[in-house]
Simulated scan of single mutants.
Amino acid sequence: MKTLIIVIHPDIKNSIVNKRWVEELHKFPEKFQVHQLHEVYSDEKINVPAEQKLIEEYEKIVFQFPYYWFNCPAFFKKWLDEVLTHGWAYGSKSGYKVAGKKIALAISLGVDQEELSSSGVYKYPLEELTRPFELSFEYIKADYRPFFAYYGIEHNTSEEWVERSVPLYLDFLDKL
């Protein structure tokens, strides 16, 4: 069964790590379906029925995005608000179309992991900062899985640093 990778990146062409991950995912069309929201909806007008139908086709879904301002890109939040509707994702006998599906986040971060800790400059670990995602996906009865995070891209833009992330990401996806 293929994994749906929903990529939310407002500037993928100038991305360092997310662009590289997408390039690698395209090498395995038998394993991954890559769905780039900003490419499909350049005007950010979401076709909700199409997105819901797409979600229904997969048992494993990963949301891939850069983490900044201690959150996801705004378009991801808009997608969540518009696609996870009452009567489809939750709240009625016909709802819960996402129930039981494995859902995970794949996050790239500019900061180092140590900076996101109780003793770090930003005080909170990523596990705490991503709780709203965990709660949202649990609310719709999805099987929320631990996230994948690749830290330090702001200070480590070398090809070697980026390439180091690729097998780690693919391994994460294979074990989902």
Rank of each mutant, 00 (worst) to 15 (best):
G120T: 00
N156C: 07
S136L: 11
W161L: 14
E160R: 11
F133W: 03
Y150V: 02
Y169I: 02
H155L: 15
T157Q: 15
I140M: 05
E160V: 15
V162M: 14
Y150R: 04
Y124K: 01
E159D: 14
G120E: 02
F137V: 00
T157W: 15
W161A: 15
G152V: 05
D143I: 02
V166G: 12
E154C: 14
S165H: 12
Y150S: 06
P167G: 10
V162T: 15
K123V: 07
Y144W: 09
P132I: 03
A149T: 03
R164N: 14
K123Q: 07
Y151E: 14
R164Q: 15
E163C: 04
S158Y: 07
Y150Q: 08
K141S: 04
R145S: 10
P125Y: 08
E159W: 09
N156T: 09
G120Q: 02
E163H: 10
R145W: 06
S165R: 10
E138Q: 08
Y139G: 07
L168D: 12
E163W: 08
Y169F: 12
S136A: 13
R145I: 04
F148M: 05
P167E: 13
F148K: 02
E128Y: 02
F137T: 00
V121P: 01
S119G: 11
G152T: 08
E159H: 09
Y150P: 02
S158E: 11
V162W: 14
Y139S: 08
T130I: 05
S165L: 13
Y169A: 04
E127D: 12
G120I: 00
T130W: 01
H155P: 05
W161Y: 13
Y144K: 08
L126T: 05
A142G: 04
L168W: 12
V162D: 13
Y169P: 03
W161V: 09
H155I: 13
